[in-house]
């Protein structure tokens, strides 16, 4: 979102948050302290817990704020720092007031969250709140970057978007059963986009994971790039199809979930000269309007290719192929 200007003085400077430690409580009441490796990349992967069926997670949240936050002579008083965990899917809102350490620049607290209250990935953020001009509870500062609490993932990855499923298409749901020869299929209809790899296709996953510049590696890189292009194109179109519009002026809104992320990502390349909001309006106009949609396709495809690294994959494939040919002729 663009910068929000508030009608009172706010705290300038960086507010940074991180999860210092995470633990989960098992059904027997024992706490398991997760390895620090569970938190990285602004994400805590609670799925890394060894405890099955854990019921509660406890997050040690640490926030650093500029020294001005609690300095004397600033326009605010009664400063509090609040950690907030939210998830759109479960309407979760769990909060805890943090307590300041000695010099008031670091605030720490434990936030508890129930496993039953989180569907998949919850967002952790903080608000610095204080009294300004006699009005209590004013929001003074928020961090620029949030933190993700993933209750399923075994390793922390902030930008995770797709899920992957290996499945035999011949024994799959309705329509895939009729297309048993497809190597993969991308399903962008669900709550998370999903890539399905056809295990009926022998050696497919092996090729996709092949390393090095041997024949398997070359083919694997190309396949991966091709799959990537398909993924990005599919998500872009799927996301664009479910847009809600602003009740005020009818302009399309970015969806709150992965669709919004995918759109923002792709639009930067599809219409690089426009602001995200303008770009979304423009593609929506072309898709629902009379003309311009067809012309946009090549741009969408280009953006997907760029994202998938297709050019690099082809370039490297050619180089590796030449090397193989040289070796054969020698």
């Amino acid at each position: 979102m663009a910068r929000v200007i508030r009608p009172y003085p706010t705290l300038k400077g960086t507010v940074a948050l991180r999860v210092q430690a995470a633990s989960v409580k098992g059904p027997d009441g024992d706490w398991e302290h997760l390895d620090v490796a569970a938190s990285a990349d602004r994400t805590t992967a609670l799925g890394s817990a060894d405890t099955l069926g854990w019921t509660t997670a406890r997050l040690r949240v640490s926030v650093t704020v500029p020294a001005k936050a609690t300095a004397a002579g600033e326009p605010w008083s009664d400063v509090n720092v609040l950690a907030i965990l939210t998830e759109g899917a479960t309407n979760l809102r769990a909060t805890v007031l943090l307590r300041p350490t000695d010099d008031g620049t670091e605030w720490i607290g434990d936030l508890d969250v129930l496993r039953a209250d989180v569907f998949h990935r919850a967002n952790l953020t903080v608000q610095m709140v204080g009294t300004v001009g006699g009005v209590p509870g004013r929001v003074l500062a928020e961090p620029t970057e949030d933190w993700v609490i993933d209750v399923r993932a075994a390793r922390p990855e902030h930008g995770q978007t797709f899920t992957v499923r290996e499945t035999a298409f011949s024994r799959s749901s309705l329509w895939l059963r009729n297309m048993p020869d497809l190597p993969w299929s991308i399903n962008a209809a669900g709550s998370r986009p999903e890539v399905r790899l056809n295990t009926d296709m022998e050696r497919l996953t092996e090729l996709l994971d092949a390393q090095g510049d041997g024949p398997a590696g070359i083919v694997g890189s190309l396949l991966l790039a091709q799959l990537g292009e398909a993924m990005w194109t599919a998500t872009f179109h799927a996301a664009l199809g479910d847009l809600e519009s602003d009740e005020e002026d009818g302009s399309p809104l970015f969806p709150a979930d992965w669709r919004g992320e995918a759109l923002r990502d792709m639009l930067r390349t599809v219409l690089p000269d426009l602001t995200p909001g303008e770009a979304l309006r423009e593609v929506h106009r072309r898709r629902t309007g009379d003309h311009g949609w067809g012309e946009l396709q090549s741009r969408i495809q280009a953006a997907a290719q760029e994202r998938a690294g297709l050019a690099k994959a082809v370039r490297e494939a050619v180089r590796a192929l030449e090397k193989l040919e040289r070796e054969e002729s020698e």
Binding site: T161, R165, E166, L224, G228, A262
Partner: peptide, 12 residues
């Protein structure tokens, strides 16, 4: 599922 390379390729 799908291997490390695919996993890496999919991270936004």
């Amino acid at each position: 599922a799908g291997g490390e390379r695919l996993k890496k390729a999919m991270v936004r």
